[in-house]
Design a protein around this nucleic acid. Structure first.
Lengths: 156, 156
DNA sequence: CTTGAAAAGAACTGCCT
DNA sequence: AGGCAGTTCTTTTCAAG
């Protein structure tokens, strides 16, 4: 695990907000030259801390106005049924994320749909028909805010 | 809302997986020239479908080995308390996403911590002490899979 | 839509402090 | 480590078919 200073943290924070910024522009903000900034970014990539860059799509503009979070409890959980479930749920196109979790539920799933009627179709025809499915709880997304998350040591 | 063809969808899918690909390289994969591909990407950006590009960080490599999803039910929900809650929860550095939802819970929150002991500290000192907080449910992330999500019309 | 080309900028390299 | 200078690549824009 490599050592990161404040500038590294600032670069990570800036890039996690907007990855289109050039090394030169980022460097100017922190008093570094373009090559120095670029070498730091390269180092963060090589260390695996910067995993990649993804384009962020607007689901609403693509016609998917409804986002629903499902909490799913399996009726039967052997090792086989976990993998079966993951394979089956991942095959549903409307599913954006599948999170295997520990707690009240076994899986947390993010689903998008054109509207509530479309979501009901997905829920009834694709989700509820899955083998081994138990309790399902749903929450409809109203609004969402993302933050960079912590980077520094967070004082104890 | 602009019209998108299969190539547009393929470009969105490719960029949402890896936004570092050049227009030239992407075009080659889909039988388009570099300027044609670039114009399509530009069009998708101007339409707001491509909202931006974000760097993906590895929380574990940054020393945050624990991710927990909280389902939070407020005890008192007036318009004021919703905004108060959002302001307060957003001020916690360990909080990555705050989702206002409709259903069994009022908010869904993604929290990262160094380990479970660190998470307990955040939960007890930062979350449970928030004004107006009601029931809190927690799920610890074991593994996560992300998919591009649907783009096309999804046959009915 | 294509190809070709040109200008700007960003990414990358090697050398030096 | 960081800066400077130079090279290579991509981006961005153009003209012409």
């Amino acid at each position: 695990m490599i050592e990161l200073d404040d500038i590294d943290h600032a670069l990570l924070r800036a890039l996690s907000r907007d990855a289109t910024q050039s090394a030169g522009a980022l460097g100017k903000l922190h008093g570094l030259s373009q090559p120095a900034t670029w070498r730091r970014i390269r180092r963060l990539q090589d260390a695996g801390i910067l995993k990649g860059r993804r384009a962020i799509l607007d689901a609403e503009k693509l016609g998917f106005g409804v986002t629903v979070f499902l909490g799913i409890k399996l009726a039967t959980k052997g090792r086989v049924s976990l993998e079966d479930f993951e394979r089956a749920i991942s095959a549903i196109p409307e599913v954006q994320t599948v999170e295997h979790v520990l707690g009240l539920y076994d899986y947390r799933v993010r689903v998008v749909a054109r509207d509530l009627a479309d979501f009901e179709r997905v829920l009834r025809r694709r989700i509820m028909t899955m083998p081994g499915i138990g309790d399902v709880e749903a929450n409809v997304l109203l609004s969402e805010e993302r933050r960079p998350g912590p980077l520094r040591g967070v004082a104890s």
